[in-house]
């Protein structure tokens, strides 16, 4: 089973932060949080109109951000979204909505884990 966060990626960012005497992980998580929330909003709108092109684009972008920050499980959920093909609009929308809920849930648990890892509280 995929782990929620990749400790190695987190440790790598933390280490550079320590050497540079700054809370680099905290900064990165702040950017990640802002970016991810914005994408979630756009994704929700795109699902409502079944805009599969934009969904694929957003899911890919979110996946990349997740991988960079070490949010492994969330990256996999985004990949599922990216790979979901538009067979017929109704089932696509239904499946995508279900995936969206999973992404939201995974994001919440990932956020908690990342907060613990960084020792910082992410801004809402």
């Amino acid at each position: 089973m995929t782990q929620l966060i990749d400790r190695e990626s987190i440790a790598s960012i933390k280490k550079i932060g320590e050497i540079r005497n700054k809370d680099l992980l905290g900064e990165m998580l702040h950017i990640f949080n802002a970016q991810f929330n914005q994408c979630l909003g756009e994704l929700n709108n795109s699902i409502q109109v079944a805009d599969s092109d934009n969904i694929k684009y957003l899911a890919h972008k979110m996946k990349g951000s997740c991988k960079s920050i070490g949010a492994e499980a969330l990256a996999n959920k985004c990949l599922e979204m990216e790979n979901l093909d538009l067979a017929d609009e109704l089932s696509y929308k239904k499946n995508m909505e279900a995936l969206y809920t999973q992404v939201e849930k995974t994001y919440e648990s990932t956020k908690e884990e990342l907060e613990i890892a960084s020792g910082a509280v992410l801004a809402e």
Partner: peptide, 15 residues
């Protein structure tokens, strides 16, 4: 890259 996280990581990693 349109991902600010990647841009920031590159800057911080390379210094």
């Amino acid at each position: 890259d349109d991902d600010p996280i990647v841009c920031k990581l590159i800057e911080e990693f390379l210094g």
